[in-house]
Computed example of a mutant assay.
Amino acid sequence: MSAFDSDTQQAALAALKSLAKRRYADIIENVRDQVVMAAMAHVRDRNIPVKLAAERCVLYALRMARVPAEDFAGSDEVLKVYVENMGGASSEKGKQVLDYQRRVLNKLAESTRELDYLSDDEDDKAAAAANAKDEDDDEDNAE
């Protein structure tokens, strides 16, 4: 993805995160390793929005974030499978994701499990609802 501008990278990572969040079993589960590898390539990006989108993508692709209860099988299981697929905990990719999980992903995952947490998707819905209410108020004032 490095050949694309940062807005495109951010949008692609956000789309992958949304798919991982909503359609994991249908779409992401079969290509999870490739999705995580692509996102891990951007978790140290200098462009902060790309870095944050990559972190969220990894979080949801590894099933560490809060997801609907019927889809949640335990945050460590998918991570363990991914590490084994990458050559185990002693491989370079395995070490990279385990280190990142220890330093960053655990904290990020915990914040998504808080009761008052609003995901970026819910923030978008709240903003759209606020804009719709403002438009309705403007129409009412115009009459």
Rank of each mutant, 00 (worst) to 15 (best):
M1V: 09
A3K: 15
F4P: 02
D7S: 13
D7C: 11
Q9T: 06
A12S: 12
A12E: 03
L13A: 06
A15N: 15
A15D: 14
K17F: 04
K17S: 09
L19S: 13
L19Q: 09
A20Q: 02
K21N: 11
K21F: 04
R23T: 05
Y24C: 01
A25D: 10
A25L: 05
D26N: 09
D26V: 04
I27N: 01
R32A: 11
D33S: 01
V35Y: 01
V36Q: 00
V36L: 03
M37I: 15
A39Y: 00
M40T: 04
H42T: 04
H42R: 11
V43R: 07
R44N: 15
R44A: 12
D45R: 03
N47M: 02
N47T: 11
P49Y: 09
K51L: 12
K51D: 08
K51N: 06
L52M: 11
A53T: 08
A54G: 00
A54H: 02
E55K: 06
C57R: 04
V58P: 00
V58C: 02
A61S: 07
A61Y: 06
R63Y: 01
R66Y: 04
R66K: 14
V67R: 13
V67T: 13
P68R: 14
A69W: 07
A69D: 14
A69T: 10
A69K: 14
A69Y: 10
E70M: 09
E70S: 00
D71L: 10
A73Q: 14
A73R: 04
S75K: 07
D76V: 13
V78Q: 06
L79V: 00
L79T: 00
V83Q: 00
E84R: 05
N85H: 10
M86N: 08
G88A: 01
A89N: 03
A89M: 04
S90D: 13
S91V: 08
E92W: 13
E92K: 08
K93W: 09
K93I: 10
K95D: 03
K95A: 05
K95S: 02
Q96S: 05
V97Y: 03
L98E: 04
Q101M: 01
L105H: 01
N106A: 12
N106E: 05
K107V: 10
L108C: 11
A109F: 00
S111D: 15
S111H: 10
T112E: 10
E114G: 03
L115F: 14
L115Y: 11
L115K: 15
L115M: 12
D116Y: 12
D116A: 13
Y117T: 07
L118Q: 11
S119C: 05
S119D: 09
D121Q: 12
D121H: 06
K125V: 13
K125H: 10
A126E: 08
A126N: 14
A126Y: 06
A127H: 06
A130K: 12
N131M: 14
K133T: 08
D134M: 15
E135S: 05
D136T: 14
D136R: 06
D138M: 09
D138C: 03
N141R: 05
A142E: 11
